[in-house]
Computed example of a mutant assay.
Amino acid sequence: MDPTHTGTTRTATGTPPGAGVSGSDRPRLARHVRLAFCRTRQRKILLHPETVVVLNASGADILELCDGQHTVTEIVSELGARYQTVPEDEVRQFLTRLVARRWLEVTDG
């Protein structure tokens, strides 16, 4: 993360129940989570201590952009450039679920 950034980081404990991510939020994988490619499955996976989550293509595409630099709006925009339609609400719901599981951290934009 950029040391000059003055935004705050939220995890599930800092996010009110039912609150989603905003367009200016900058999601990134939590420190204990890693995105990797599984040669056996020929798919991207999310590695969490004692857990492996096999991602579908759209989930992997979203998480590849969760680097703490891209805002949620920029992620949706980038995906929209790659594909014809990208439901912004579905991207936000996906990110919100991962924040609730503490697999993503969100920095306020």
Rank of each mutant, 00 (worst) to 15 (best):
T40M: 03
D61Y: 02
E74S: 12
G80I: 03
L63T: 14
R39T: 13
I45F: 01
E50S: 06
V33Y: 04
L29V: 04
R92K: 15
L35Y: 12
L79S: 05
R31C: 01
A30T: 12
V72F: 07
R82M: 09
G23W: 05
L46Y: 08
E74W: 02
E78F: 02
R92V: 12
L65E: 09
R41C: 10
Q69F: 10
R26W: 00
P27W: 06
G59Q: 15
V53L: 09
A57S: 12
L46M: 12
G80D: 12
E88H: 06
P87C: 03
A12D: 03
G80V: 04
I62F: 05
A12W: 04
R82K: 15
A60K: 13
R34H: 15
A60Q: 12
R34T: 12
P17A: 07
R26M: 09
E64M: 09
G14Q: 15
A57R: 13
V76W: 02
I75L: 05
C66Y: 04
T15G: 00
V91Q: 10
S77N: 09
R39L: 12
D61M: 11
R34G: 01
K44L: 03
A19R: 08
L79P: 10
R28L: 10
E64I: 02
N56P: 01
D89A: 10
A57E: 14
L29W: 04
I62Y: 02
R34I: 01
V91D: 08
V53F: 06
D67N: 12
G23N: 14
Q69R: 14
G68M: 11
H70Q: 05
I62L: 14
L46I: 00
S77R: 15
T13V: 09
R39E: 14
R31F: 02
C66M: 09
L29Y: 10
T40H: 11
T15V: 00
N56Q: 03
G23L: 07
Q84S: 14
V33D: 04
G18K: 07
G68P: 11
H70N: 13
V52M: 10
E50H: 11
S24A: 14
L29E: 07
C38L: 07
C38W: 10
A30E: 05
L46S: 01
T40E: 09
I75M: 05
I45E: 06
H32S: 13
V53D: 08
R10I: 06
V33H: 08
T11K: 03
R31Q: 13
R31S: 11
A36C: 09
E88N: 02
V54K: 00
T51R: 15
G20E: 08
Q69T: 13
V21I: 08
S77Y: 05
T9H: 05
L47V: 10
A60E: 14
G23K: 03
V91F: 07
G80Y: 07
V33C: 08
L47C: 04
C38K: 09
T85K: 06
